[in-house]
Structures are given as structure tokens and as C-alpha cells.
Design a protein around this nucleic acid. Sequence first.
RNA 1: GGCCUCAUCGUCUAAUGGUUAGGACAGCUCGCUUUCAAUGAGCAAAUACGAGUUCGAUUCUCGUUGGGGCUACCA
Length: 492
Amino acid sequence: MTVRTRFAPSPTGFLHVGGLRTALYAYLVAKQNGGKFVLRIEDTDQKRTVEGAIEGIIKSLAWAGIIPDEGPEIGENGEIFQVGDKGPYIQSQRLNIYAKYAQELLEKGHAYYCFCTSERLEDLRNYQQKNKLPSGYDRHCRELDQSEVKSKIDSGEAKVMRMKMPTEGETVFNDLIHGEVSFKNELIDDQVIVKADGFPTYHLAMVIDDHLMEITHVIRGEEWLSSTPKHIQLFKYFGWEVPKIAHLSLLLNADKSKLSKRQGDVAVEDYAKKGYLPQAMVNFVAFLGWNPGTEQELYSMDELIKAFSFEKINKSGAVFNLEKLDWYNQQYIRSLSFEDLVNVSLPSLIEAKLVDKNVDKVWLAKALSLEKDRIITLAQLPEALNFIFTLPEYDGQILVWKKSSFEEVKNILPRLVEYMNTISVQDWNKEKLQTMMGEWVGENSFANGIVLWPLRVALSGQQNSPGPFEIAEVLGKDESLKRLNTALSKLK
RNA sequence: GGCCUCAUCGUCUAAUGGUUAGGACAGCUCGCUUUCAAUGAGCAAAUACGAGUUCGAUUCUCGUUGGGGCUACCA
């Protein structure tokens, strides 16, 4: 049997980093087994549906390298179309299907109409809370007389449909991560499965869709663990096979509460904007709650697909720790080829108006290499590289190395400039410059710092910067000498 | 409150009925070095608590405590 997994977000906003992890694991399971990964949009709550959210989710997944085999996709003109033969994959387009199966449940006596008003339900809840009673629906309409039901319907009373939970026994299932979990049926609510507006609730739609879409592994967040018995009961009522189920622990804030917007960014797109590489994000998120058990930290998507297993998933929640993400990002930035680095950073450099799209890519690669090892995110690049394009204002005092003096710099720098002027443009690259300058420093018996510090500061205008020779090469001879002369003028 | 669930360094985690409880990030120290970064060497840092089973429990069982989730005509 082909493995089929799914990711089923509701389009209420951007893709959450926790959602990315869930989607990733589901994707890994599918790919590892040569199966299919399905994207399904759960928009049965019309009030919460946000315009553009479906596109955002698809784009964020694609950014991370997760391309569904079936589900909605974005066309060339931005329109949404669907691929796969088990669609539609957007639940609001499947209403007739849900209606049919809800009717079946009703006819088999596994569901019933409920006419309780929201006021009555609220009073009931308040009463239960006040008296510290177990909460839940009191099954008021469960045994309503058929004729009474009919007359209420005929008179147009608002109604919902609820499933009948058995009032005895227990529901036991084997979670792929948690092992055996059991619930007493009597404690489980008669869940609403069709709302007053005719839309199904998640619980009904999910069961029907997972069956019809032939999902073999349901991989979802732990917040669904408590409602799983309802789903299992529904599968049983329909006479369908229950898929394998895995509940992933939640991602946590630093204070161990459920990861929330208030305590930092949770949208995948925010991390993309902040200059995190998708490889870093995927690697990081994969290792939150899962570990292959080796000492290797860096895993590509392909390696993750090979290494993934449910047995290695942790049961406890994992704190979403940005410091580790930073480290991953740094590692992946450093491993980028110059070509990739140029491609991936060009947009932000253009946006910062440092270069235009006709910039010499070979030169740009050299410039980028100055900061490649020094940045944590791509977003730092424009600022880090700014000194190449514009010499910053600086105080002449910072030209003095800590073990040197103003007088000494004033004495040596002119001689250095004079010497550098004699170096030909052909030799103006970091290797040659380094050797030649090394010799010059040696011949004059200077300490490196006495010469190199002011040189570097003069070229960069900054106390902290990349090395002088690499900067000089990127700047070229003319600009380098111009900057050196600027420095000389600051020493007067 | 009820139900479910979880518990190893600050954080992510490895390990197993017997280890000096391993690694990574962060932190600290030293080295390299013209600065920053990178890098090398090193340091510090954990089995929540209490019983039980056992020759021996971090590991198995029970309890306690603490955390988290659910408790909607939201997903």
C-alpha cells in the first residue's frame, strides 16, 4: 500500500513554524516510503478564513523545499488550481460530500440533531464550572422523540448535528509516538459534527477526507490528542480503517509555554525575510523533537528523508531556540557557493540600493566573500557591506593602533601610501598585496599592527572590518588610494 | 476543576538495567591574530523529588511535584 501523508492547515494566516515542522515530518515520511504528500486546506470555519492565506502557506512550504504531490497550487497568473485525483483539496469545495456522509451517520443512528441554543449551552458551561463539575454537553437532545425532532425542523428551528459517543467502554489507540493511549468514552462529548450553517466541523471533515484521500499516516500536533477518540469513533461508525496516527509534541516559547506570536516571530515568512536560509530552517526545525542519534548536526533534505523515523521522535515539547537557528544559518551561509551567495543576496542588495541588477557578478562575489563568514543572516549583508560603497565618516584617532601612537601613524602612513602607489594594477589582488606588503613591513622592521591597523581602518573607515588586503582588492587601486589619502588628511 | 500528556546540562538532545552520563548551541578561559569574524585547546553545566523491583536504576513500576494540551456550532 502506498504511503500517503497530509498536511492540513486552516487558512487563517501565515504558515507557523510549528506547522512547518509538522508538514516537514509528514513530507519526510511520504518521501522516505516513495509515497505521496498531500496538502489539504481546512477552511470549514468561514469566519476565520483569511484572504491570501492559502497562497502564503503554499509559498512558505515551497520556500522550505516542501512541494506537495497533490493539493492546491499557484498558477502563473497567481490563480489557484488543484492537482491530484482525490480532490478537491479545499474543504469548502467538498460540502456535498460531507452532507452525504453526515446523513448516513444520522440514518444509522450514530448522530442526532441538537436544537440547544448557545445561551443554554453557555449556562450549562457556567454551571459546570461554578460547581467544578466535568464540563461537556449534557446530551439534552440525544433522546429527543422523532416527531418532536421533525416538528422542530419543520418550524425552522436552528439545529446542529452531534455524533453519539458510546456511554461506556473506552477508546484505545496506538499512537506512533506516544504508544497506547486510552480514554473513557463516557467522558467524551457528543461533538458537533455539522454546524448550524451546514458546514462540517473539523472532526467530521477530517475523518471523511483522510479516508477518501487514502491517508495512511495522520501526523499532527499534540493539541489533537484529546479529540482523537472522537475521530476513531467516527471511523468505526463509517466502517473505515483507522489510519496510523502520530501526535507531535508542541514547539515552546523560552518559558515553556506553547509557542506564540507574542514572544517572537512564528511565521515562516518572517524568517525568510530576516535572511534565514531555507536549508537552515529545515535542518533546525527537523531537529526540534527529533534526532537521528548520530553526532552529525547538518542534514540536507535528502539526508533527512533517509534518516527520519518515528522511533527517534521525542515525546516532550521543544523550546524554539533562536540561537541554534543562528548557528545553523551561519553554517549554511558559509557552505554556499559564490554563485548561490550572489543569487540569494542580490535582491536585498538591490533593495538597499547598493547595487543594481547589472552589477558585475564576479566582483560582487568577491565583495560578498568579505562578509560571508561574518554574518549570521542575509539581512545583515547590506549594512555589513555598506562601507565598500560609501566610506563611513570616522575620527582620525581610530587610525591609531592600540600599541602605537598618533605621531607614529602620522609618520608611517604617508610612506605606506607612497609605496602602495608603486604597486601595479595587475598586482592589485589580495595574495600579491599581502606578500608585497609583508616584505615592505619586514624591510622596515615594523610590527604588523603598526601598519596593518591604520591601513585597514583607512580602507574600511571602521574599527572592525575584514582584512586590509581583501578590502583593497575589492575596492581596486584607485579607490583604495583615494581612501588612504582621506586618512592622511585626517592626520594633520 | 475534569480528561489526556510530558519530565537528562540554561537550550536542543544521545545513551542504557552496570558509562568518568556523550554531542551540539549558548557561556567562560587560553591560544592564533592588525580589529571583528572564523578557528584551535580547555573549563563549567543535567538524569525533578520520594518509594518500590533489582546485586545494581537515569533507564522498569507506583506516587508526588512541576510543565503542557484539550475541555467551542475554532482548527
